[in-house]
Design a protein around this nucleic acid. Structure first.
Lengths: 199, 199
DNA sequence: CAGCTGACAGATTTCAACATCTGTCAGCTG
DNA sequence: CAGCTGACAGATGTTGAAATCTGTCAGCTG
């Protein structure tokens, strides 16, 4: 590694910040640490990000965007039945959050800090996710698989209903024994509610 | 008031503790404060409650039991349709928690402390509530209004699904503009899922 | 002269001495 | 002698001074 040879870009700063966060956690990670990791003065970091909060938000945004991409693959696969897509989408969301919480506890903690600050980045992420849900439900309404309810309203309701399995505040419950069964039971009930009355 | 004339009972200690908690909040309230309020030494309080945590738990239990009683009236009213009872029960739960969070912020904060400690008192409370839900759903299954699903499983699913509207972790969202509509949309969806397919 | 540096003011965090609290218990009191 | 007291040890919380951090900016450098 030759950190001082390349020009300092926002991208390189984000990379370094993620590393520092992973090592120290959101409570201990400082802008000075990030600058040290890059071999520059902390003033240079402030040239690319106006505040520490903005830097933290940018790291989290990247991290959430990667999750969004994963789920978008399921959302966009119009070859499969809406019901299957919805099931898979919810399961993938649960699984993704669960893995993040386990594999990257410090970055996950950063995300939780942002959630509590009710940051714009998290609000956007949640809007993006309900947007994907809305698309799947629209497809189901169009195909006649789902009842003719307002897709956006139902999407929000489904998202709220499954909060226990994607909201970071519940992360400590995700590794408990019955979690998977509870999740399935809940999704089954929601799908019963979504399905159109017998053809 | 003549606090030193009556004998010291668990009940009187709980009363005083509730008052101290209301005034100082869970972070500042001490056993010494409670003893002072009663005009006794703190050693006497330990005669009735083995630890501070036990005292806090007992106060919260009383508080939660009152909520349980309120909801039990709805649960037990077998003259009304299961669907109506379920709607009213969920609305009453939401309303009760919302009022507690607003009117008694310090006692509510105490309850949140216990929730985070995942205390036995809270676990019991949650079990009691899902028990009530189970009874209502059993009634609905028996009357043919609800589909023949396992009542306990469905009760747990409904309880999890509505967490956003009764879990203290979400209390800061309960006074937001759209909360009531979001709640109604969610309950509507759940009831669609519960209803038996057309007679 | 664009981009970086490093000194700086004010905000925040750390740390250690000090104060208060929790939980126990021997002995006092009614 | 049942029930209460108050002194006590160890745990926890408070406080304020010192250290560190955030965010700015005048000036250096390639």
């Amino acid at each position: 590694m030759s950190p001082t040879t390349e020009t300092l870009t926002a991208e390189r700063i984000l990379e370094a910040t993620e590393e520092v966060l992973r090592r120290h956690g959101p409570a201990k990670a400082t802008v000075v640490d990030v600058a040290r990791a890059l071999g520059v003065s902390h003033g240079s970091v402030y040239r690319h990000f106006r505040t520490k909060a903005a830097l933290r938000a940018a790291v989290t945004k990247r991290w959430l965007d990667r999750m969004f991409e994963t789920l978008d693959v399921i959302t966009a696969d119009e070859s499969r039945a809406p019901e299957t897509r919805l099931r898979d989408w919810l399961a993938a969301l649960f699984e993704a959050k669960r893995r993040k919480a386990g594999d990257d506890p410090e970055l996950f903690a950063t995300y939780m800090v942002l959630t509590r600050e009710s940051s714009e980045v998290v609000d956007e992420h949640l809007a993006d996710l309900t947007g994907q849900l809305t698309r799947i439900i629209e497809a189901g309404v169009a195909s006649g698989d789902f009842a003719a309810l307002d897709p956006r309203t139902v999407a929000v309701a489904v998202f709220h209903a499954t909060g226990r399995f994607h909201d970071p505040g519940y992360s400590r419950l995700w590794e408990r024994p019955g979690a998977r069964e509870d999740f399935t039971a809940l999704v089954d009930l929601l799908l019963r509610g979504l399905r159109a009355p017998a053809a």
